[in-house]
Each structure stands twice: as structure tokens, then as C-alpha cells.
Design a binder for these strands. Sequence first.
DNA 1: ATGCCTACCAACCGATCGGTCAGTTAGTTA
DNA 2: TAACTAACTGACCGATCGGTTGGTAGGCAT
Lengths: 210, 210
Amino acid sequence: MVPTLLASAYEASEKSALTRILVEAEVLFAERGFDGVSINEVALAAGVCKANVFHHFATKQELYERVLTQACDIFGRSLDALELKEQGLAARLRRLVEWHNAFLHQRPHGTRLILRELTGSPTVLERSPVFPLIQRNFDRVVGLLSEVSDELREGISPALVAKVVLSLNLFGFQTERVNEKLMVAGSLATRPELQRQWLDLLLHGIEAPS
Amino acid sequence: MVPTLLASAYEASEKSALTRILVEAEVLFAERGFDGVSINEVALAAGVCKANVFHHFATKQELYERVLTQACDIFGRSLDALELKEQGLAARLRRLVEWHNAFLHQRPHGTRLILRELTGSPTVLERSPVFPLIQRNFDRVVGLLSEVSDELREGISPALVAKVVLSLNLFGFQTERVNEKLMVAGSLATRPELQRQWLDLLLHGIEAPS
DNA sequence: ATGCCTACCAACCGATCGGTCAGTTAGTTA
DNA sequence: TAACTAACTGACCGATCGGTTGGTAGGCAT
């Protein structure tokens, strides 16, 4: 039946309670982490009572893992849908970076959730199902670059390029909210412009031609 | 007076209780974050009782901020001690990256603590004294690169280079423990080798000379 | 000796934590 | 109609949270 909905209410009311729990849990966990969020908060945000959350998920950990694997899954599916047929290295890289960045900003909460696991202590969730997913996604990016590896300078592997590109995008995303407050160095242009700059930097190098 | 020290004991016993509290708090907060650590845990790790922690620090938040600003301070002092006199762009960059990376691994806990703030929600500590410190440190790095900005290609600013270099180092540090478990792409050499590779990549570009 | 200060501790406080339980409601099947 | 099930709720549980209180022990100046 329709939940009370006079309680929190401004939200949801269309989607099922389970869906609302998952959505709100993703936002809250992404923003404050596993320990920073109580089940009560999730329940309140979803417009249900705490016991109802435990009706759908046996433990807090189970809810967290469900939200996390869901986020990984969505990332994987979006990556699978990306096709870079018959494009050269530069065009491929540009498309890859654009797709990646667009995805990060379309799903900021899921992204932050994954980044939390990626950068946190590895013992916490190391046996969870997300690790193989992350591995697979990275390998797929490497694969996309391998197809044009003949355009790479000697000694530069597709894996290295993938790591550098993804790192810059992810770290940029991770710190962009702080950068706004910080106005780092006063300079550093807008985000798309900045991205274009470091991609160009990557392709052609830093040093002035002598 | 010497604290009971028969309690936790295997640790410390030389340094003062206050010092032990700060040291253990840094480790714990770095590993599990503000919400993931209780004052009792800190007290136990430091070999004192909980009330003693509140004798030295009015609130948990105050302890956290003290540990955090201390970490920022140490970073700033190490950066100030770094001198790059009369070196060219490539040598400067190499030295900068080496210093940065060495520092990160000499003080992993302090680094993780700062990264937590740098990548977390900005509302939490935005008015804390650490923001100006971070700003200042970044500006100093930009300054070191500006002195050789004439060696940079047109359109490439020292700030951009600083951001890219620091990002790659920091994100690499953030994810290296997971990378070990993940064995990303099976390849990707050892850390110093990998660092040499992406620095070379940055200097000379990705694309093969045509 | 007295008084005072800092360091330190056991015991305690109200609030909140993750989680349980008994029971209600509504839709489904028979 | 009766029986069953999934969704849902308020009230409750023991444990732990951040923080307080009252008091002890030693160092030090007078």
C-alpha cells in the first residue's frame, strides 16, 4: 500500500518504497560514507519507517553493498554502450574522456560511492562483488586504447594511458567542489576548457619544441 | 605522572599521553574517517581513558581539527624546505614529483587525512583553518614551476601542469592499496617505474612522432 | 604544611545506534 | 469466506555514542 507519505512526502510518492530507499541511500552514503549515515536517516529521507528498511535489507551492510554494486553495474553498462569504431588515437581519447566525464556528472552519487571504495581501506570490502566489476571496466578501457596502440610512442602502454586519463578525470571530479571554494591559483579556466587543455598536454607533451 | 600503561601498553610509554593521543587519532581518523572512529577507540589505542582525551580536547571535532591542521602544517613545512635552484623544467618536475611522492609515503596517515577533506563534502570543514593552508601550498608549487614557464609550450600554464602532476601523484597514492589487490590490467610495472613513465609521457606527449 | 594546578581516572548521563518483535493492512489464492 | 503472504508500522532492546562529573595523585610555589 501507499506509505503514509504525509511524513516526509515532498519527495517521491510515485516510485515504490524500495526504490526510494535505494535512491536516498545512494545519495546519503555517497555524501557521508557508511559510518556517517544512520538507517533512520535513510528511512526518513525515503518516507518510510526504520523497520521497513530492515524488512527489505537484513543489515545496514547489505543495503550498502546493494547500492554499491548497483552503481558499479550502471557504470559498466554505460561503458559497454560506448563504441569507438574506426577512430584514431586522438579522437578516441577525446571521446573517451568526454564520455567518462559526462557519466561522472550524470551520476555523481554513484561515482562518489565507488570512489569511496576505490580510495578507502581495502580490507573493508575486498571480497565484495564490486572488485571484479571495477577490474573488468578498467580492462575494457585498456582494450579500447589497445586497438590504436600503434599510434603510441614506444614504451607507452595502453594501460598507462588509461590509468593517467582516468586518474585525471576522477581526481578532478573528486576535488572540483573544493576547487570552487578554493579557487585554486585563481586561474585554471572552466572545467571543459581545463579538460581540453590537459588532454592536449597529454597528446603533445609539456615541453616547448626546441 | 606515568600513565597506568599496563592497560594497552605494547605501544608508546616513552612519549607523553597527549602525543600518543594525537598520533593514534591521526592513524585512526585517516583510516576510517571522522564518523568511523570513536573517542573510546582513540583512548584505548593511546593507552589512556576516554575522559582524559576530553581533558586535552573539548570535543571530538576539536581533536580532529587539531590532527588535521597539524598534518597540513607538516606538509607545508616540508614543501617550504624544498628548493629547486637553477634547474630546468624537466629536472624540476622530476625533483618535485620525487619529493611529493616521498612525502606521501613518509606520512601516509596525514596524507589520507588531508585527502579526505580535499575530496569530501566541502560544507563539513569549509571554514576550518586548513583551506588557506592547502591554497598556499598549491600556490607555492605553481610558483616553483612559473620560474621556468618559458620552457612550457604555448597555452600551457604552470597552474595546469601543477594540477596535473599533483593529481596523478595523489590519485595514484589514494588507489595504490586497491591496485595491489586489483592488479590492474596485470601490467603497470612497479611504482617508481610507473611514475617515471607518466612523467616522461607528460613531458613528451603520447603520440608517436610522425 | 598549605594551597593550587595539571594530568588522569571510574562511573555515570541522555541520546542514538543497528536491529528485533508483535501486530496491522491490503492484495492474492483457494 | 478463509488462509496466506508481502509491505509496513510503533514500540522496544542492549550496546555504544559523545560528553560530564566528582574525585585522586603528584609537582610546585609559598
